[in-house]
Design a protein around this nucleic acid. Structure first.
Length: 348
DNA sequence: TCTGGGGTCCTAGGACCC
DNA sequence: TCTGGGGTCCTAGGACCC
């Protein structure tokens, strides 16, 4: 197997720098209330995603701030994936800006050459820097692209893999987050080689069944190398951060704007559109706590009136008005049914 | 200092059925 | 009337990813 993991660097910021020459080579951030994506020049100053925008501009007045342009990023993503598909039909999106590509038997024995060609094409035609990692499994390709950033290429060949794999730290594994690592740590497991000698039954006493299987396959070198084509989108969400507020009308107005955006995106997804049967409304408070409320529509619909009525109901149920904290984010998710029915087969 | 504005997947438990 | 074993579907809640 030869897998590539292609990952655009500082994606939102790179799109902005591409579209506005005045931003190129300068520290800048894509941000609303907080920073969503700093350019590499801004990262060099110590700026990272999640910082309050006001703090950034106060401390680094030379940093330019631009707003979030969702449609521009989606268009750039489409162009990027169009390039990916020239190298193989087997493309599994990881997010708007990254994908696994299975190029087994297509790379003419020169995966590095193919990866370099992909990077050149993305740069020339889409105008974006893309880092690429090459490996035998998804994990290896992913670790390689992480190592390749920014704007680089790293190949993990079998010899390198054999050397590196046992020494991988468990919290560097994709899929192992703080909660899981805490459990592994408590069981005395820190690196991949610590898993040698463990079996599934025993590891299931530490982490969930699925996680135990995944970890043991990583230790055995038989981890996931299957690139899966994307299925239909499972949900669409729209959220928006705002300056901490307790004013009901402000929160409701931002939520209404999110409903509009989400409905538009669902409508653009399929023809005819799939209709949500439920709505989830989320609120984040200024102490960082998030509250989610879910509710069912009486009938699946994209009708703005019905969605707004239910969403406002759910918003009330989050208790945002009376618990004294300010609201710093509000939004909603529309879970979508898997495609209703396949189109009828053509009649012979 | 643990976020933005998006997403996916897993698991537990209840409802319901035979 | 109660118990039991087994299956499926749905939802809530988390963990995790960029």
């Amino acid at each position: 197997m030869v897998l590539l993991h292609a990952d655009a660097d500082a994606f939102f910021a790179s799109v902005e720098q591409r579209d506005d020459p005045r931003l190129r080579g300068r520290p800048m951030v894509v941000a609303h209330e907080v920073v969503a994506c700093p350019s590499y020049e801004a990262r060099a100053l110590g700026i990272h995603a999640g910082m309050a925008t006001r703090m950034v501009t106060r401390r680094w007045p030379e940093v330019l701030v631009v707003g979030y342009r969702g449609e521009a990023y989606e268009e750039a993503s489409r162009a990027l994936f169009e390039v990916f598909h020239r190298y193989t039909p087997l493309v599994e999106p990881g997010s708007i800006e990254e994908a696994f590509l299975d190029v087994t038997d297509r790379d003419r024995g020169d995966p590095a050459g193919m990866a370099a060609a992909l990077r050149r094409t993305a740069r020339a035609e889409v105008g974006l820097p893309v880092s690429v990692g090459v490996g035998r499994t998804k994990l290896m390709a992913k670790l390689a692209s992480r190592r390749a950033k920014p704007d680089g290429l790293v190949v993990v060949d079998p010899d390198t893999e054999a050397r590196v794999r046992p020494r991988l730290h468990l919290d560097d594994l994709w899929g192992v987050g703080p909660t899981t690592y805490e459990k592994l740590h408590a069981a005395g497991l820190f690196v991949v080689s610590d898993l040698y000698g463990w079996d599934e039954e025993r590891l299931k006493g530490v982490v969930s069944t699925a996680m135990a299987r995944r970890l043991l396959s990583i230790a055995a070198g038989t981890d996931d190398a299957t690139v899966r084509l994307p299925g239909p989108r499972r949900s669409v969400s729209a959220t928006r951060s705002l300056p901490a507020t307790r004013t009901r009308s402000k929160v409701a107005a931002v939520l209404d704007e999110c409903i509009g955006r989400a409905v538009q995106r669902v409508t653009g997804l399929d023809d005819p559109p799939r209709l949500p049967a439920r709505v989830e409304v989320v609120v984040r408070y200024d102490d960082g706590v998030q509250v989610l409320q879910r509710g069912a529509l009486s009938v699946p619909t994209l009708d703005l009136g019905a969605l707004t009525a239910l969403s406002h109901d759910l918003l009330d149920r989050t208790g945002f008005e009376w618990d004294g904290r300010g609201v710093t984010m509000v939004g909603l998710t529309l879970p979508l049914p898997v495609a209703p029915t396949a189109p009828p087969a053509p009649t012979p």
